[in-house]
Design a protein around this nucleic acid. Structure first.
Lengths: 205, 205
DNA sequence: TAGATTGTTAATCGATTAACAATC
DNA sequence: TAGATTGTTAATCGATTAACAATC
């Protein structure tokens, strides 16, 4: 089944809520209020899970949680490397929750001799010149790009040549790649501006 | 004028491209192809800038760049603190480009005595118990939340009491706040799943 | 001139919200 | 039973794409 991006995003938020939720059942209205969205939207999202609720009671929390996990594939593992062992890369290497959601960080790479062969949270840092080998040895499908933006395009082209499938781009840089590679831009500046540009209407003083 | 979120996001991507672009003029088709979107969408987005192009030539790169900067308010400064001086917080503290887009990191806060009074990239780390003072002293409008998720809700409630306006939430946690506070969730898990869930259709082998 | 490109309108598509019968 | 909640359809809203006249 094809689940729209926005629905996937909301499903993960429902999952966060359910993890903290102590009752056995939860209604669409409660979930909706916590996220400031419409309750019929919650019910529609849940329909994608082929999950069924109970009138007058709501949804079984455990069942709902595990059907989100099953549908979004929290259990299937995808191997990734982090390219760039700076703070951002290290922060992501230490983000252990990734494992619970199907993302396995196999290794890191950097060009700094002082960092090579060190580890961050148990992930070894390899020489960027070994990129090709590391990707093959660990069966890596995704590269997480946290290099300085000057280097982003060069690395991205290399990754494409090696045949990587996914590039998760944390640099403020639009990568030129063919349509064999999927790029996801984590655009912090964009988020910041979206967030703060809306002073105009809404809750200002 | 009220610019939709998606447009704001694309405008920042255009800006990234323009920064690297060496010609004097650029057409909507070139921008569109780089982002794999429709060229009439690019022209519509640019209309929000009240910028005008030239038939047969395209848009003046410098003019376009500065009208994006003006419209999105890259020059107005908003003060923020980073709460949680771990790797993620430190990575953000070192992300100097924020300054070019109107975000000024005034200080950091943490509860670890070993970190307090140290600095990261010139930003001093204050005791989290001084939160109230720091926010007032630096005229802080935004808190960037990079604490462990167990602490996220407690800090978030404190921030609301103090009267903070924006919480940029990097924790995998849905915060309960009143509508006086705006929360922006940087949902990494959600992005990851959106990104990789789409094996089904598209470019798989 | 011929042709490339903008600016803009109309058509399409998708996502959100409203409404309500069915259920327990 | 009365009332709360789901499941689902219809209505609305917004975003994207298609089309094309106007321009230089």
């Amino acid at each position: 089944m094809n689940i729209p991006d926005k629905v996937i995003n909301r499903l993960t938020l429902y999952h966060y809520i359910l993890e903290e939720y102590t009752n056995d059942f939860i209604s669409s209205t409660i979930l909706a209020n916590m996220l400031h969205i419409d309750n019929s939207q919650v019910r529609k999202d849940i329909k994608y899970l082929q999950n069924t609720g109970k009138c007058r009671v709501g949804y079984d929390v455990e069942v709902l949680k595990s059907s989100i996990e099953r549908t979004l594939g929290f259990q299937k593992n995808l191997n990734a490397v982090i390219i760039g062992a700076g703070n951002y890369g290290s922060a992501l290497a230490k983000y252990d929750s990734f494992n619970n959601y199907g993302l396995n960080i196999s290794a890191m790479l950097d060009n700094n001799p002082l960092k090579i062969n060190k580890t961050v949270n148990g992930k070894k840092i390899y020489d960027i010149n070994k990129l090709d080998d590391v990707i093959k040895d660990f069966d890596v499908k995704m590269a997480i790009l946290t290099v300085p933006k000057e280097e982003a395009q060069i690395i991205s082209s290399k990754l494409e040549d090696i045949g990587i499938k996914y590039i998760w781009n944390f640099t403020p840089c639009v990568l030129k790649v063919s349509n064999k590679v999927k790029v996801c831009n984590e655009n912090l500046i964009g988020s910041f501006l979206q967030f703060t540009r809306h002073n105009q209407e809404g809750i200002n003083e």
